[in-house]
């Protein structure tokens, strides 16, 4: 879809850059902070920033899920694990692969950035859409939640059911693993 009025506005660009820099700084803190508890709090900040990105991508339903599941449930689980293991005082040390991993991750980042910039996405994005098609696309992205619901119980009903079995197995497995004998 061609950019609409809001997306080319300087305000959108400014908000995007602030959110993006916030996400990267928070993710960097997760990896490099010495205090594991503070790293978990930085992780929540990163999750909230990604929720903001979803809002900017017209995915409001995903943004809500992101806040509920990631910033709510998963981060609480992680903070519980940090507190229960009482290993906080040992800090957040690196193993002996630190330099190799840093080099690998940096090389991957440069490679991905190069590929993303070199790929001619414009040919895909600027394909000519008829006015009716553009109106339809705009309508879909103005209210995504009912369409996601329909997709989940029609096209993707099998993965949907498999996901429920997976969650059930995960619940049982977690209970069995941490149960007191």
């Amino acid at each position: 879809m061609t950019p609409t009025g809001l997306e080319v506005s300087p305000f959108f660009t400014l908000v995007w850059w602030v959110t993006a820099i916030g996400i990267v700084v928070a993710a960097w803190s997760v990896v490099f902070l010495r205090d594991v508890l503070k790293a978990a709090l930085a992780l929540i900040g990163s999750f909230l920033g990604v929720a903001g990105m979803f809002v900017m991508l017209n995915a409001e339903f995903l943004a809500a899920i992101q806040v509920l599941l990631y910033a709510g449930a998963i981060s609480i689980l992680i903070i519980f694990a940090v507190l229960l293991t009482r290993d906080v005082f040992r800090g957040n040390p690196s193993n002996r692969f630190e330099r190799l991993a840093f080099f690998l991750a940096g090389a991957l980042m440069f490679f991905l950035t190069f590929v993303i910039i070199a790929t001619p996405w414009g040919q895909l994005k600027d394909a000519q859409l008829s006015p009716e098609a553009q109106a339809g696309v705009a309508q879909v992205f103005s209210n995504t939640t009912p369409i996601i619901g329909q997709l989940l119980v029609q096209e993707y009903v099998l993965p949907f059911e498999v996901a429920s079995v997976l969650l059930l197995a995960a619940i049982l497995g977690a209970i069995v693993l941490v149960r007191e004998e």
Partner: peptide, 12 residues
């Protein structure tokens, strides 16, 4: 990439 570094290099 940041996540990959953390997953490969951290002990905890």
């Amino acid at each position: 990439s940041i996540g990959l570094y953390g997953a490969l290099a951290k002990k905890n």
